[in-house]
Design a protein around this nucleic acid. Sequence first.
DNA 1: ATGTGTGAATCGGTTCACAGCC
DNA 2: GGCTGTGAACCGATTCACACAT
Lengths: 218, 218
Amino acid sequence: MSSRRIPEATVARLPVYRRSLIELAQEHIPTVSSERLADMAGVNAAKVRKDLSYLGTYGTRGVGYEVQQLLYEIESKLGLTCDSPVVVVGIGNLGQALANYTGFRQRGFPVVALVDADPDKIGDTVAGLVVRSIDDLDTIVAEHAVSIGIIATPAASAQTVADRLVAAGVRSILNFAPSVLNVPAGMPVRKVDLATELQILSFYQEHPADSGRPQPAA
Amino acid sequence: MSSRRIPEATVARLPVYRRSLIELAQEHIPTVSSERLADMAGVNAAKVRKDLSYLGTYGTRGVGYEVQQLLYEIESKLGLTCDSPVVVVGIGNLGQALANYTGFRQRGFPVVALVDADPDKIGDTVAGLVVRSIDDLDTIVAEHAVSIGIIATPAASAQTVADRLVAAGVRSILNFAPSVLNVPAGMPVRKVDLATELQILSFYQEHPADSGRPQPAA
DNA sequence: ATGTGTGAATCGGTTCACAGCC
DNA sequence: GGCTGTGAACCGATTCACACAT
């Protein structure tokens, strides 16, 4: 069942498997069973096997999966073989934190530019980068071959920023603003909404009856 | 079909409907159709109607939903009738940004305490709060009736922090560390993993064939 | 004996389509 | 006529269970 279209839910779990495999690789463990990997990733073994079967036939019956090979396979399916430069738009509290977050560069997503609309912020240095005007977005994206735009502005400006990111040629968007974005069909967008997460937790605190464990995917 | 168990996917959308309703309320719009609400929330009308039907029968055929009443109903189902105090653990870049994020307080989740393990950070003032030792967690949670713990530490310390939050009596956890947490059955946990989100975007950039739009729920 | 790979069964969620009420 | 509420059909994802490879 190799080379079929990979289900969305599976795609969302690949980064988790990847993290587990990196850990195993660091401990020089050569092979891993679906059960062990499932434990590390917080899912069940059947799911691991089904998920991995979409990538191809990389396991050995009676043995398990070769850590290095599987890691390579996942990274290549995720398109992590080369870096994807990122621009952060909106250099408030959150934007600054994202600019300083070293995990991005480590995982192949270097933050190469910071952008804001506020003239007071333009010219400031944050995380070793000078904050530039949002009007320079086209140039910046072209210059640095930016492929991902992160929106960390207030909700009110999010749609405008998204439009400008799209126009500038960014290939996907991660949105931290609490607002729904309209983008061209087929452009990947993911949303992270902190207040929404807390409200979901609030619901399950109040309704322990409703089978406690939220968060199905991702 | 009222008062049945509310599906997880529906719960995750309630905060989005809520945001749209707040917007409508601010414009003094008295009623809204499922279609309009669907547009604002970025979903389709059938989904809105089905979702709202789990809350009860609050719409009027031929008219729509009364904005104020529906808003009240959603907020009460989400348990937002009183504040849920939050403690942030790990006062690095992200922790500081979260401490400063005004959206939390606005939406009923005041950040009442900051905690870190690093003696250099303890005693610092961030967002008007003094950073306290993680060893004081029990006292802090009891003092402020903290119900939600936010983990913004490195992955290596996340499980220990989670254990201590649970022991201190926190009722749910929002985890920003890239690691899988073990918590007692029935305790609500949500995870926000920034690097994972970027990897998912990376996949869909590389595979435009695989039907472009990720992010099914939330 | 062990552990993968995968059809088949199951489950949860979405969409359809229309009856019922305003 | 317009719009909700909801069974029924549909679709994607999860889980089961076992044949098969080592």
